[in-house]
Amino acid sequence: MSVRVSLVAAARSSALLAERFDDDRPLDHAGWREVQFAAHRLVPLGAAELRYCSPTPRSRATGDALGFAPLVQPALRDCDMGRWRGMTLSEVAAQEPAAVGAWLADPRAAPHGGESLLAFISRVGSWLDTRPVREGALVAVAEPAVVRAALVYALNAPPSTYWNVDVRPLSTVTITGLPGRWSLSLESVPH
């Protein structure tokens, strides 16, 4: 008996270079177009018994646009970036270069006054481990950072691995298993 968790990264709300920490902006025009273009491959995930999303406007809008009618899960919120909320990494690095360096180097550091990377990964992992344990599937639409954190947790990888995982808008990944015993599941695309 195992649970199948498909994670879908929310569509974009801004140009990738203009992404901001803890960004609560809704989907932009490009994001809506991307959802429409990708819907044919993502809509089947909505057959999952359980459908969730993070509380951000773009995650909710992505899930709704795909017809998932997802239940909002506060535990799937983006990392709390404290006083850096709403800023880009470039803006923060220009103002607080030492703090950014500490944050990138130490997963326990929270120089912004919010949540450390380790606490964020643990929170997302706790959400994974508390899903109903029964044979079945669930889908969750979340911010790319949440998908990255879930992968690091599921693979029991060092927290520094988080920085080496690239999650693009509307990308998907599936993990299978049971609480505390997750595996990455790569699937072939039918021809």
Rank of each mutant, 00 (worst) to 15 (best):
S171E: 13
V152A: 04
S59Q: 09
L89P: 05
T88Q: 14
P74C: 15
M87S: 08
P70A: 05
V165F: 03
T174K: 06
L45P: 04
R168G: 07
G86D: 11
G114V: 07
A69W: 08
Y162K: 06
S188C: 08
G125V: 07
T176K: 11
A38Q: 11
A157H: 04
V133N: 11
A30G: 10
F37S: 12
E34W: 07
C79H: 05
N164V: 03
H40K: 14
L117D: 08
L170R: 03
A48V: 07
P169E: 13
S59C: 10
R83G: 03
P179A: 14
F37H: 14
E19M: 09
H191Y: 11
A98R: 08
H191G: 15
A15E: 15
L155R: 12
A102C: 14
R134N: 13
D28R: 05
G180T: 08
A98P: 00
R123Y: 11
T62W: 04
F21Y: 08
S126E: 15
S126H: 09
Q95L: 09
A110G: 02
F21R: 02
L104V: 03
V8W: 00
P44Q: 13
A18K: 14
M87Y: 06
G114L: 06
V72F: 02
P179D: 02
G101E: 10
P158W: 06
S171Q: 15
D22P: 02
S90A: 14
S188Y: 04
A39D: 00
E115P: 05
F37K: 12
A157E: 06
D22H: 10
P70N: 04
N156M: 15
G67N: 10
R12I: 03
R123F: 08
D64K: 12
P70I: 02
P169M: 05
A137C: 13
G31Y: 00
L128M: 13
N156C: 13
A157G: 05
S2Y: 11
R25W: 01
A102S: 12
S116Y: 02
C53K: 12
H29G: 12
D166Q: 07
D78Q: 05
W127L: 00
L170Q: 05
L42D: 01
E34I: 05
V124F: 07
S185E: 14
L76R: 01
A30P: 01
W103H: 13
P97F: 03
V173Q: 08
A65D: 05
A142C: 10
R41A: 15
S13T: 05
E143G: 07
E143R: 11
A154F: 03
W127G: 00
A47M: 11
T172V: 09
S116C: 05
F120T: 12
V139W: 00
A150Y: 00
Y52A: 06
A98D: 14
L76E: 01
L71Q: 11
T174G: 08
G177I: 07
L128Y: 06
P132G: 12
F120V: 10
Q73L: 10
C53G: 13
S54K: 07
A18H: 13
L45C: 05
L66N: 01
G114S: 14
T176V: 12
R25D: 07
Q73H: 10
S59I: 08
G136Y: 07
M1D: 11
A93T: 13
F68L: 15
G31M: 03
Y162V: 05
L45F: 09
F120S: 15
A69I: 07
W182H: 03
T174A: 11
